[in-house]
């Protein structure tokens, strides 16, 4: 029987209350859905002084659409995304990635904020959000800052969030007429994703107008984005794939219990190749 260590539990109802409490506590653990956090507590991987529950803060529970910009509050549950996001290509990629998180009982608890803030390289949303150039909306006592998601991570399980700060949500521009692809490779018994690839491309009359790929997963660590818009012809698939394979070859990928570097590179090649085929093949 796994029992978490002792901690104080603080439920906050407003952002001001959160800022006050978070600054008072030396080692807080912030939870919204709490699925991964509770698992880490049960395994005693973390021993926070207090758990701060932010699920009741109304500002974090909203999805706002303003002209071509979308704000998704950090508390938005992953299963709800397909119903609350607009019908554009960027949202489609987010929904595709969110729908692959765990199972329905995990997605019904898991939140956008949790998936983004944990910093686990296996998490899905960071890769999709990196591909669409989304921004993290960070709240602190004296204001709000916006930061590209690709700059949000320092290393696995470490984000730029400082004590007393909070991820209010993510912001992105709606994209229309794009093709999207989301691929990942799971090692079941290690409960980890070796590679994750999100691709988004706009093609008009066989001409590539815009093309971005983000890759993540355990092999990569924090998500990395590649802009492939320099290629203009969809017939250049072979060259595009070779360019991506070259990128992967130059990356520092470790041999560890998740596999050899060679194996992980081959997984990435395969996922990238499939994603490119899906968005570029007419």
């Amino acid at each position: 029987m796994k029992i978490p260590p002792n901690f104080k539990y603080i439920r906050t109802y407003t952002l001001d209350e959160y800022y006050e409490k978070a600054n008072q506590i030396s080692l807080p653990l912030i939870i919204s859905g709490g699925t991964v956090a509770v698992l880490m507590l049960k395994n005693r991987l973390i021993r926070p002084e207090a758990v701060i529950d932010i699920s009741q803060i109304p500002e974090l529970n909203i999805v706002k659409i303003n002209k071509d910009e979308v704000f998704v509050g950090a508390n938005t549950k992953l299963y709800k995304l397909k119903d609350v996001l607009p019908n554009d290509s960027a949202s489609e990629l987010i929904v595709k990635s969110a729908s692959t998180v765990g199972d329905i009982a995990i997605r019904s608890m898991g939140s956008v904020g949790g998936n983004v803030c944990l910093g686990d390289s296996s998490n899905d949303l960071p890769v999709a959000l990196t591909a669409i150039d989304a921004q993290a909306v960070i709240g602190k006592k004296d204001g709000i800052t916006y930061l590209p998601i690709k700059n949000f991570y320092i290393k696995p399980f470490k984000t730029v969030l400082n004590k007393g700060e909070i991820l209010l949500g993510v912001n992105y521009k709606m994209l229309n007429g794009y093709r999207t692809s989301y691929k990942k490779h799971f090692i079941n018994f290690l409960d980890h994703y070796v590679g994750i690839v999100a691709a988004i491309a706009k093609i008009e009359e066989n001409v590539i107008k815009d093309f971005k790929i983000a890759i993540g997963g355990e092999a990569v660590g924090k998500p990395v984005k590649f802009d492939l818009s320099e290629f203009s012809n969809v017939d250049e698939i072979k060259i595009i794939k070779e360019r991506m394979f070259d990128y992967v070859n130059t990356m520092h990928i470790e041999n560890n219990r998740f596999g050899t570097a060679n194996y992980k590179k081959k997984v990435l090649y395969t996922l990238i190749s499939r994603a490119i085929d899906e968005v570029l093949k007419l």
Partner: peptide, 29 residues
């Protein structure tokens, strides 16, 4: 109580109509 890691689903209940794994949730939540 099965795996206690949220994998087996034998602790599944409906919470406000949605399925959740009750081993991955604090009672206070």
């Amino acid at each position: 109580v099965g795996c206690e890691t949220g994998s087996c689903g034998s602790c599944m209940v409906l919470l406000d109509g949605m399925p959740v794994k009750s081993c991955l949730m604090l009672a206070v939540q």
